[in-house]
């Protein structure tokens, strides 16, 4: 067999595999999830919801398998955020707040690491290709399989799979929120000098920083509630408790997710002089549902349809 024939045979063997990879939007989504953590890039993205619009300058670097980011608000107050792995440093004129990142999947890293979890709740399809931030991008639509969540439209860079644009729409195709790069550059070399430039200039960890976060997070040992009839596809991913201002009482925040959508369910004791509230309202891209039960104000908040937050608020049993 000549060398040419050998190469042709190899090509024929691997071509179908490559075609499957390109034909399956789930594979593209998985590559996209990885790319958003692995790539080095610098750009500006624009975010818009019904309540507000603003622009952010972003630098993202992966150095020795650790993620670093620098974000600066370009509108309003010049606040900045620096990330190093799971730690997030928020800087404004008042000082520095250091937080540990748990469920914050910040744009463009909006996809969960376990893409399979999305398959239960979303139907995936390719959409049209278009230019975003001067780059060709392939649209992938994650359409909700039920009315409990919104639809996600993600434009993915055709060459390196980074999400360049995200649009969230409701069931009537009305836009709820969007984030999109207006400029972006790849192939930037980031090394240890970058860490020095970005972090040591802005954050002096040798100095004692007092965070003014009034909330005290506690480990919850006694769950005095039961959850019944939760909206399908949502799992509890976190539980936070906080001390109620000035009182020896705790309130609780349970966090649920279906992989893309997040809902917080608050269980708060009603303090003297506070009237319990019931009903549903919208604030920005979030729907909020309130119910009263056994001396507790139950509130659910999330970028999901009103029916979903209502179901969450009604799911608590004491």
């Amino acid at each position: 067999m000549t060398l040419f024939k050998k190469l042709l045979t190899l090509l024929l063997l691997f071509l179908p595999l490559a075609a499957i990879s390109m034909d399956d939007p789930w594979d593209v989504l998985e590559d996209s999830a990885k790319a958003s953590h692995a790539l080095n890039y610098e750009g500006v993205f624009h975010s818009q919801s019904s309540a507000e619009t603003n622009s952010t300058h972003v630098i993202h670097a992966n150095i020795d398998n650790k993620e670093y980011c620098s974000l600066k608000m370009l509108d309003g107050a010049p606040n900045e955020v620096f990330c190093a792995g799971d730690l997030v440093y928020v800087i404004n004129q008042d000082g520095l707040l250091i937080k540990k990142r748990k469920n914050q999947f910040l744009f463009p890293s909006v996809l969960p690491s376990d893409i399979n979890h999305l398959k239960k709740n979303y139907q995936l399809s390719f959409g049209e290709k278009k230019r975003v931030a001067d780059r060709m991008a392939q649209l992938i639509v994650l359409r909700a399989k039920d009315n409990l969540r919104f639809n996600y439209h993600i434009w993915i860079d055709e060459k390196n799979f980074l999400p360049l644009k995200l649009v969230v729409t409701d069931n009537k195709n009305k836009m709820i929120e969007q984030s999109t790069f207006t400029t972006i550059a790849f192939n930037k070399e980031f090394n240890k000098e970058f860490k020095k430039d970005i972090f040591e200039k802005n954050i002096n960890l040798a100095k004692l920083y007092a965070t003014k976060n009034k909330f005290v997070e506690n480990y919850v040992s006694n769950k005095f509630w039961n959850l019944k009839d939760l909206p399908a596809g949502f799992k509890e991913v976190d539980l936070i408790s906080r001390r109620v201002n000035g009182l020896n009482l705790l309130d609780y925040q349970l966090i649920f997710s279906d992989g893309l959508a997040y809902v917080s369910l608050f269980i708060r004791p009603i303090t003297r002089g506070t009237e319990p509230k019931e009903g549903t309202v919208s604030i920005g891209s979030n729907n909020i549902s309130a119910k009263y039960q056994d001396g507790y104000q139950i509130m659910s908040v999330g970028m999901v349809p009103p029916e979903t937050v209502n179901t969450f608020s009604g799911s608590i049993e004491f």
């Binding site: 507000e52 997030v88 937080k99 469920n103 910040l106 744009f107 936070i240 906080r242 917080s264 979030n286």
Partner: peptide, 15 residues
């Protein structure tokens, strides 16, 4: 508290 724990938008996170 919701955005601090669940934000997928850095602008919210900063605010």
């Amino acid at each position: 508290a919701h955005h601090a724990a669940t934000a997928n938008n850095m602008n919210y996170f900063i605010q």
